[in-house]
Design a protein around this nucleic acid. Structure first.
Lengths: 337, 337
DNA sequence: GTGAAAGCGCTAACAG
DNA sequence: CTGTTAGCGCTTTCAC
């Protein structure tokens, strides 16, 4: 059906006045007489008139919409970010267009094009693991769209970003293990080409070196999900190389490690202390509860959005990229003491 | 800056042809000569022309966008639903506008108006816990927007919906506890005015009655989050009324109950068997792992979206509301055997 | 095979 | 104080 919604013209016709007068009346323009305003507004309410945001966008070359490209909505961290984005956007009268890349490069490119087509006023991006080419993001910039990265940043494109201090947080996490007397600390890391992964690894290495511990290549492995962590622990056990501490690049990985160890009859934290990173809700719920770094997803989303909206409102006050670094908070629970 | 994006006119001007020809060439219209098409398409690529979806929407009175109103994005269940929505929409060339109500009625109303203004082609809704008046949703219908409810349905508004068979799933869950010899089974339920809550409670009651067990009002309480479950268990313990089984209306509640019990030195599942409902990722991770009902969030989202898109494509083939009931799958883990 | 013109809903000069 | 006009980018009759 699509019952044709009422327009400013309809109101004008009914009231026997011109569309522009209606338009002005609705915006409380000073020129319009009080009675006209009253008549217009009353009729508008009565007819349940809704301004057509599309027409407005076309006219003003401004959609009051921001786009979000995010790897996977289902991760607690990312959904908290979205929540923060949505809340700030809502308060500013903006709507949010969400696209998930599912970690696929192709899909990320398609998402960027879609957002471009829809003439969003700005874009928030956390890049897909798979992405190594960033022409699609450069294109957004070229087209004059403000761009703010969060969490997964790409240095190739000059843009604002909001990250947490992964290096420092990883350092603190590892240091905490060291202070508890752990000597053979493993690191389960993410893919090499993601900044956050290398940053976390670097923090780990800094703590290890600073403490004069041996840097053991066998204890550093790429494993960034539940299953891989499971396998990694089993492999270490098979080779009689089990560590006494593990710092994992995310919580699910940590939990995978923990459960694999427990299945082998290893006591957590007595025999192996474990600490994770971020993913949120899970950490308070495992047994033992999991020490972790709180990544403040909601705050990251709201901060990034505030920066973006600011760019949208004040275009190009000769651009200097803002880099906002949030502190990751070490939350010590049972798995590491 | 907002570097003015190139339009069909630009291409026309450069090529010395008319905008309409360009438009047709881009859509591969049969009337247009091969060379013209070639020239146009090449230039389009070269200039990185992006069709203006806004202009298109205005013209065709069709935004190729669907709106989603959802209580809280951060819940695993809801974020899986969104993921399902987004995937299906993406495949159909639709974008998704996400609004979260944060369980607030006012915000839900504002969301509905925003979506209306943005002339989305259809809306997916799961209502806020707080909402008891649904005029804003009726308005969407009146305006001719297809509406599909998922999970949290409201009977007042005639619309399609996708739910899981909460009653049956709750029945199966409770039955499972009974079959394992539990006699005093408690139910931690959600707010009375939510259909899903009463449905789950009814399933529980049906199983209890059918088994000839005593229906004990002291064992049925409104508790639908971690903290409330904690308190509930402590209270039951204080009054020496601890059950030997608990069916909770969601996983976090179940986990709250489990941890409170464990703190009291009670063995799960030996002394109390516990089973939850839905929230996803958590259940495999607790110790013991939590039996639960898989609510198939992704499938719910994708199904609802398919129904919605179908309504959008085939408007008003004299409307009979579709009610799609998904089965909740009982997933038995360690906490209940 | 291509172009001219109108119009989607709205706003903003410019007139009066 | 209000109306007329033009135009945002695009499609689509209707001409030629």
């Amino acid at each position: 059906m699509k019952s044709s919604s009422i327009t400013i013209k309809d109101i004008a016709r009914i009231l026997g006045i011109s569309p522009s007068t209606v338009s002005r009346a609705l915006k409380d323009h000073p020129d319009i007489s009080a009675e006209t305003k009253k008549a217009v507004n009353e009729l508008a309410v009565q007819l349940k008139y809704q301004p057509n945001a599309i027409a407005l966008s076309l006219k003003q070359n401004r959609s009051n919409t921001i786009g979000v490209i995010i790897p996977e909505i289902v991760h607690h961290f990312f959904s908290s970010v979205i929540s923060g984005i949505e809340d700030v956007a809502y308060d500013a009268g903006f709507t949010v267009m969400i696209c998930q890349s599912n970690e696929k490069h192709d899909r990320e490119v398609a998402n960027a094009n879609m957002l471009l087509s829809h003439r969003v006023d700005g874009v928030l991006v956390s890049v897909a693991k798979e992405s190594t080419n960033f022409d699609h993001l450069k294109l957004l910039k070229e087209k004059g769209l403000p761009l703010v990265f969060f969490d997964r940043v790409v240095p190739v494109v000059e843009a604002d970003c909001v990250v947490i201090d992964d290096e420092e947080a990883a350092y603190k996490a590892t240091r905490h293990l060291i202070e508890n007397g752990r000597k053979r600390i493993a690191h389960f890391s993410g893919p090499r080409h993601l900044q956050i992964s290398t940053n976390r690894k670097n923090g780990y290495l800094r703590a290890i070196r600073e403490a004069g511990l041996k840097e053991d290549a066998d204890l550093i492995m790429e494993a960034d999900n539940f299953e891989k962590a499971n396998n990694a622990v089993r492999m270490l056990a098979d080779h009689n190389k089990l560590p006494d501490g593990i710092f994992a690049t995310n919580d699910l990985t940590a939990i995978g490690a923990m459960q694999a160890a427990q299945k082998l009859g290893i006591k957590i934290p007595e025999q192996i202390a474990i600490i994770g990173f971020s993913d949120g809700r899970l950490s308070g719920i495992t047994n033992p509860t999991l020490s972790s770094v709180d990544q403040h997803g909601y705050e990251m989303g709201s901060t990034a959005t505030r920066i973006l909206l600011n760019r949208i409102m004040n275009p190009e006050e000769d651009f200097k990229p803002i880099k906002r670094v949030l502190q990751g908070d070490l939350v010590i629970r049972e798995s590491s003491i």
